[in-house]
Design a protein around this nucleic acid. Structure first.
Ligand SMILES: [Mn+2]
Ligand SMILES: [Mn+2]
Ligand SMILES: [Zn+2]
Ligand SMILES: [Zn+2]
Lengths: 135, 135
DNA sequence: TCCTAGTTTATAATTATTCTAAAGTAAATA
DNA sequence: TATTTACTTTAGAATAATTATAAACTAGGA
């Protein structure tokens, strides 16, 4: 993903392409593989990988803005920190409790044969499968 | 579940049947249907349903003790609060994002036909299916 | 260039949870 | 039963993640 695409992505989401947002977007989206992060881990990575200094609040703001724009997904993981995912396509996860690591599972790798119908008045939004790992 | 069973349950887990633990255990386990709660909601319910006063720390202590003893399960839910489940049998959940409500799905209501093998050196501990609901 | 709404920032506030250490209690021991 | 001991409860302090505040800054339009 090139700089011009980053600008487009931000603009089309109604987000001004500020220095901070562009830097963070480049870091998150200019890569081959998607990945999972917390605000804390992202902050550390940005400190290492860029010369820029970001206020922690800006990282929170930006991550939430990207999430609300649909450029990031939130993943439910046991524990206190919120995990985000640059993979916004419907998929599933292995979760390694020892390392607190999430591993993607492509949606087509899991086939569900039988599923209950939603409670009265509700519809199914999506189905998430979590496979907990042990050694 | 009778008082004598509550005592047994506590004793067999190496937990002294203190007034507080017995009260909380009665509240949690002397019922027909299992249920989901947070420490905050449990605290409120205990205030309403019992004449006893519990320090918040005691509720945390007790819930964790029960969880470690295997009498409660923790459920991963989006958000900041930790959810607990008196249903300790393997099962799945609907999650209603509007009401923050968890609804149990019996394990046999979901049949998974295809599942990827665990990453190298790891084994599958369990599989949890989360069905997010919308209106 | 000037203006303005949107953004960043340092810092304070909030929320959920855990820690601390003193006081209380269950139950083993004498 | 009285004494002892380890375990438990408790109020309050501490911590950790996140959100709110409000002043300074900036992108982009007029
Ligand atoms: Mn969670
Ligand atoms: Mn928290
Ligand atoms: Zn993922
Ligand atoms: Zn449940």
């Amino acid at each position: 993903m090139k700089k011009i695409d980053i600008f487009k992505k931000l603009r089309s989401s109604g987000l001004r392409p500020t220095k901070q947002r562009v830097e963070i977007a480049k870091f998150l989206f200019e890569r081959d593989k998607t990945f999972h992060f917390t605000v804390e881990s992202l902050n550390k990575l940005l400190e290492k990988k860029t010369t820029f200094k970001f206020a922690l609040a800006t990282i929170y703001n930006t991550v939430h803005a990207f999430k609300n724009a649909g450029h990031l997904n939130e993943v439910d993981v046991r524990g206190k920190k919120t995990y985000f995912d640059t993979n916004i396509i419907n998929h599933h996860h292995f979760y390694d409790n020892e390392t607190s690591e999430l591993i993607d599972i492509d949606a087509k790798e899991i086939v569900i044969q039988k599923i209950p119908k939603a409670p009265n008045g509700k519809k199914i939004k999506n189905v998430e499968v979590f496979i907990n790992l042990k050694n």
